[in-house]
Design a protein around this nucleic acid. Structure first.
Lengths: 254, 254
DNA sequence: GATCATAGTCGTCTTCCTGACGATAAACAC
DNA sequence: GTGTTTATCGTCAGGAAGACGACTATGATC
């Protein structure tokens, strides 16, 4: 089979960028790394890198995630849920404006990862340093200072982050995805605090408890209890097999 | 600024593929073109093509859509809705498995377009011919005959089509997107038949009427009436400004 | 022109879900 | 013990949806 005519199409570089979200001290945080190279040297950016020649897009995202955080990604397409507790990873969207990278044509396939609270990030790859930053802070900076401010994220990463956060906010409404922010065993209160942090609202503990325990297949009790949040001991649960929440959890109007 | 080191990343070709959906004679249909070139010569495929060197991804999708159907795409990011009746166009997902194209590494950014019923497609580009095919027929063939059957879609297009249909099915639940399948003025019954065709169910006309007319901003009456569906004359409506449907339209369990 | 078929529109009733909130339970700190 | 914190159960009113009856206005058929 003859190869394609190389003049028929221009060459592109393809990268993956990661929006890694977690909940730390009651606020939604994302992983950012400081760029050590031009362009945008010294600015914060989402972790990411080039897709290798024989690598699938999802595999590239999983590799970058492991390099930056040590997390193993769950493959949503796997026939059985992976028993150990890795991160949820899904494709978010693809960004390919011609001038988004000043040096050449780069198309970036952004991915969204949701992880339970992690120890401080281990710097790796081309990053001088890495940190968990509250998303509100990052997005407010981009809105207030403009994209050219030294506090703003590099490239179009503010847009990618914004899209990723919106995806997470809407997806926990109608799926069990919020459990991806929790450790393997968790209490109803811990799950409620995840919703509160992601949505930036406060929820009625009694109605929330009724909703999540009344949805078949959403939570399965492990039998244990814990007092790690203080107060009366709470039942421990694992995520059940149900992935869709029907009817959905309603996000309160602001 | 020095260019990137070319050895740091492998070259990719980037294409856009289109899932163009419409409702014809009470069933959900998609546009497919017959391939005139290897690979998969003679097989049906989704329309698409290479992204040009200075072209944004959305612009490439809009260009391909216009070439294949003559439709102009609405830009969802535009500050005001475009008054004329083009198609809804949005990015769907990106497919980049290393062997998805046998000749070289191709990453395809799939887009989803929703259009009102159109005249027979005009063949264009590299397609020998084009047709509207019922999606159930196409997907059943892929499932029954396997991907190597001559009836199956080329490349991974059965997967892309399946993802696009699922996106459309879920998105009309909580948005006013179903109006994109309708002409500029339409009746409640015509809108209901769109939902019925996309979901493959039948809906109660009375409850549907109550739901869509009771949601503020969803439909605005034009004052006219029509009897083009037979029976009692029905009020004509245009799509209102509301894009989100809250609470959502509930898809009946199968 | 009467009858019929077709489609549209308005109501009613029951059931389910949610939001608001009272009350009780079981731990810890002092 | 008292107070504080968190968890859990229960009650009640309001809203939305499913099921379905009733009526209306057109064109088609006899």
């Amino acid at each position: 089979m003859p190869p394609y005519d190389p003049s028929a199409f221009p060459p592109f570089a393809v990268t993956v960028d990661l929006v890694v979200l977690t909940v730390r001290s009651h606020s939604l945080c994302t992983l950012v790394v400081r760029r050590g190279e031009t362009p945008f040297r010294g600015r914060w950016a989402l972790p990411g890198g080039f897709v290798r020649a024989d690598e699938d897009l999802g595999a590239a995202a999983a590799r970058e995630l492991a390099e930056e955080t040590g997390l193993r990604a769950h493959d949503p397409g796997a026939p059985h849920p992976v028993p150990d507790h890795g991160a949820h990873l899904e494709q978010l969207a693809t960004y390919g404006a011609p001038e988004r990278d000043p040096r050449m044509r780069v198309v970036s396939v952004a991915h969204l990862a949701l992880a339970p609270d992690l120890p401080a990030p281990r710097p790796g790859g081309d990053a001088n340093s890495a940190r968990w930053a509250p998303v509100e802070e990052l997005l407010d900076q981009a809105r207030a200072a403009g994209d050219d401010s030294p506090d703003a994220l590099a490239f179009d990463h503010a847009q990618i982050l914004s899209d990723g956060v919106e995806r997470a906010r809407s997806k926990i409404e109608y799926s069990s995805l919020a459990t991806a922010f929790c450790p393997p065993e968790f209490t109803v209160g811990e799950l409620r605090r995840v919703y509160e942090a992601v949505w930036g609202v406060s929820l009625d503990p009694r109605n929330f408890h009724r909703k999540v325990t009344g949805t078949p297949g959403f939570l399965v009790p492990t039998g244990g209890t814990t007092t790690r949040q203080g107060g009366r001991p709470a039942q421990l649960f694992r995520a059940g097999g149900a992935t869709l929440l029907n009817p959905p959890m309603l996000r309160p109007e602001v």
